[in-house]
Design a protein around this nucleic acid. Structure first.
Ligand SMILES: Nc1ccn([C@H]2C[C@H](O)[C@@H](COP(=O)(O)OP(=O)(O)OP(=O)(O)O)O2)c(=O)n1
Ligand SMILES: [Mn+2]
Ligand SMILES: [Mn+2]
Length: 699
DNA sequence: CCGGGGACGT
DNA sequence: ACGTCCC
């Protein structure tokens, strides 16, 4: 989007001095600044991890021969990233293929449009980090924040028994050996933890990356990239002003995007210092209170936002872009293709999506590559169940009409259109209720055991499994950057409390409670006919009332015939009043036994329960959707149906036949309208969070 | 020759 | 539903 417009700024001449790797220190001195013996220390210890040339690294693992050649990962016409061999030749991230080939004719390209492998590796990293400490927040596929404050506190005691101690890795802007780790003992311990975790990521997953150690997320992220590949850097409080002041522009501040930078520039602000010195009151005028304060804080290197465990993804999407798509048939095929892969992913996830969204991007000369349009609708529960159950083909076939209906809400297919992108997305993901215990569940992200919902009450306190926490290393090698230091990872092989399967694949994500029985949702996009005002006066002949004649005429003759065949017509005609309303059963919120100790630490916002109480679906009673006695369910738009390929239509028909009719509500035809937009936003999350960015939320 | 994802705020 | 941010 806007993201890359100013992306291509030259690397400023960073004056990043550092003392490398092992700064000796004596422990005689007093402990760190805010070391109040009692609970939450004023200063947190935050780690930020960022994998090296992530997609390229994954491809190099898959094919080691690529390690020695300049490698670019291609998505359409873009080299989205490249390995460091290629970077030595001047290649950069997000470079066009033509520019890249120009700079480096021998560049080897691997297509990276399918993110599957990157996504899987990404979650393995997050999972590994979580196994050491639950406070892990993802950012994109290759970054994780971690709050290790408590882990540090626990190590502190053990450290005091040790004689010497030092930082691991670089210390920002600090080249003298005088660095007193004793003044920043907790950050120093954080640097050891970071080194150990990087080592674990390398030995277990084969991935290298950078880490930043600082007192908040903003600073940890900013400092992590100081020395680039496969190194780590700690930012001491005394250097906060340095690192902020030397950012080349406000755009470098995470949270200041293209639009915000433009607005700031309109105020005459370009550098971080500009913003630091700008009167808050003037800033408030432009951005409003909280965002203004947030911006100023960011410029000062202040960031109180907590590390919020990310949990399982809130949406899954699949998209493709292209130069031109202009026929309904192509659109349908593309959506079919996208849906097939998305439904498979959704099934592996194990949860049940309740909302479907279709997004398009249209070509236009003026708008060049701009805005997207989208429409969404509820997913009828019987389809959601098929997705979760793994009846993927059935699910896809039944989702297709939904998607096409949404498509027609955006695109008048009787007029020429030109699309350049289609995206399909599942959201409002509901966890199916675990058996009886009603406890936490582990939904497997990975393939291995699809139906994985396990109960796990362990893990509660602290760092658990790995005794990375065990004791600090007492030797210090100055291996500058090589993650190969003999860190005290010896203990890593201690018995894992989890089953091996869980350790490998299990994912302990966020919890929630019950949403009890759900109503039969009726997609507004699925309501047939009876659209007020949209009746056809140009009727040609015996077309069912809800078929658009214009569309009908465009259909192939064979499809027209089929539509007019008695069986179909009967179905279509009987659909209009088939919209039985099923009562919305009251949602009985049942509290989670929650013996799972929330491994959340001090910065948990007051009033926020450790785990949100939502998104868990009661196992559904076998209720069958509002289908009338006709074989043609009421939620299928005839126009859409007519556009489906014959085989899809046949599949749908056979689907419908197998469904046993449900008890018809005698008092059916009701104002469905009030219900169809139901789709309440289970507005769960941030109770307030109106901040500029959730990215650096206030605490 | 501007990907393919995500999260959150309005 | 769309905008902005992140990677
Ligand atoms: N606009 C972007 C930014 C990133 N990515 C993908 C490709 C990257 O491989 C991955 C991680 O992004 P980074 O910015 O961390 O870049 P790399 O990890 O590739 O390189 P570096 O070693 O500089 O971190 O996310 C993307 O698809 N589109
Ligand atoms: Mn990154
Ligand atoms: Mn990276």
């Amino acid at each position: 989007m806007d993201n890359s417009e100013d992306e291509l700024e030259e690397n400023e001449a960073v004056w990043k001095n550092s003392f490398v790797d092992s700064v000796p220190l004596s422990l005689a001195a007093a402990p760190g600044p805010s070391l109040s013996k009692t609970s939450p220390p004023a200063d947190r210890v935050i780690l930020h991890f960022d994998l090296d040339c992530f997609y390229a690294q994954v491809e190099m693992i898959r094919n080691p021969a690529l390690r020695e050649v300049p490698l670019g990962i291609q998505q359409k016409y873009i080299i989205v990233t490249c390995n460091y061999v290629a970077r030595e030749q001047g290649l950069t991230k997000l470079m066009s293929v033509t520019d890249a080939k120009e700079k480096c004719p021998q560049l080897v390209l691997v297509n990276g449009e399918d993110l599957t492998h990157y996504r899987e590796m990404s979650y393995k990293v997050t999972e590994l980090l979580i196994s050491y400490c639950p406070l892990v927040e993802r950012l994109g596929f290759d970054e994780n924040f971690m709050d290790v404050t408590e882990m540090v506190e626990r190590r502190l005691a053990q450290t005091l028994e040790s004689n010497t101690f030092s930082f691991k890795g670089h210390v920002y802007n600090q080249r003298s050996a005088e660095v007193k780790a004793s003044d920043y003992l907790r950050l120093a311990l954080g640097s050891h933890i970071a080194a150990e975790l990087r080592e674990a990521i390398y030995t277990k997953l084969g991935l290298t990356g950078c880490a930043g150690i600082a007192t908040n997320k903003l600073l940890a992220k900013l400092v992590s990239g100081t020395f680039k590949p496969n190194q780590q850097t700690t930012l001491l409080p005394e250097n906060i002003r340095d690192i902020m002041g030397h950012l080349s522009s406000l755009r470098k501040v995470p949270g200041v995007g293209h639009q915000t930078a433009k607005r700031l520039q309109a105020l005459g602000l370009v550098t971080v210092k500009d913003l630091q010195l700008f009167p808050l009151t003037d800033l408030v005028r432009e951005f409003g209170g909280p965002p203004a304060q947030r911006l100023k804080n960011l410029a000062l290197g202040v960031d109180d936002s907590p590390v919020t465990p990310t949990g399982a993804p809130q949406s899954l999407s699949d998209e493709d872009s292209f130069k031109k798509m202009s026929s309904t048939k192509d659109v349908l095929e593309k959506i079919h293709q996208l849906l097939s892969s998305l439904v498979e992913r959704m099934h592996r996830d194990g949860r049940q999506p309740q909302t479907f969204r279709l997004t398009i991007r249209r070509f236009s000369a003026t708008n060049k590559w701009f805005s997207r349009e989208s429409r969404q609708c509820p997913i009828p529960s019987h389809i959601g169940q098929k997705i979760a159950a793994g009846s993927s083909d059935d699910a896809v076939v039944q989702l297709l009409p939904l998607a096409m209906k949404l498509f027609h809400k955006m695109v008048d297919s009787s007029i020429t259109f030109h699309l350049t992108l289609i995206n399909v997305c599942f959201s409002n993901l509901q966890t199916r209720r675990a058996v009886s215990g009603g406890k936490g569940c582990i939904t497997s992200f990975f393939r291995a055991s699809p139906r994985k919902i396990q109960i796990l009450s362990s893990q509660s306190q602290g760092d658990s499994s790995h005794s990375v926490d065990g004791h600090c290393t007492d030797h210090q090698f100055s291996t500058h950057g090589m993650a190969a230091q003999h860190l005290s990872l010896k203990t890593v092989t201690t018995k894992s409390p989890r089953s091996s399967e869980a350790a490998l694949h299990g994912f302990k994500w966020k919890q929630s409670t019950v949403v009890a029985e759900e109503e039969n949702q009726k997609a507004s996009c699925c309501t047939t006919g009876s659209d007020p005002g949209e009746t056809n006066d140009t009727v040609t002949h015996q077309l069912p009332a809800n078929i658009d004649p214009k569309v009908f005429k465009l259909l192939p003759e064979e499809i027209q015939k089929e539509l007019l065949s008695p069986a179909y017509v009967n179905c279509l005609l009987s659909t209009s009043d088939s919209q039985n309303i099923k009562d919305v059963t009251a949602a009985a919120n049942e509290l989670e036994p929650s013996d799972r100790v929330s491994a959340v630490n001090h910065q948990q916002p007051a009033g926020t329960s450790a785990f949100p109480v939502e998104n868990v679906l009661e196992e559904e009673k076998l209720s069958f959707p509002q289908s009338s006695d006709c074989e043609f369910p009421g939620n299928v738009d005839p126009k859409v149906f007519s556009e489906l390929p014959l085989d899809v239509r046949m599949e749908l028909m056979s689907e419908w036949k197998q469904q046993k009719p449900v008890l018809k509500a005698p008092f059916s035809r009701k104002p469905v309208r009030s219900l169809i937009t139901k789709e309440r936003n289970a507005l769960g999350k941030g109770s307030q969070t109106n901040s500029l960015l959730k990215y650096f939320k206030r605490s």
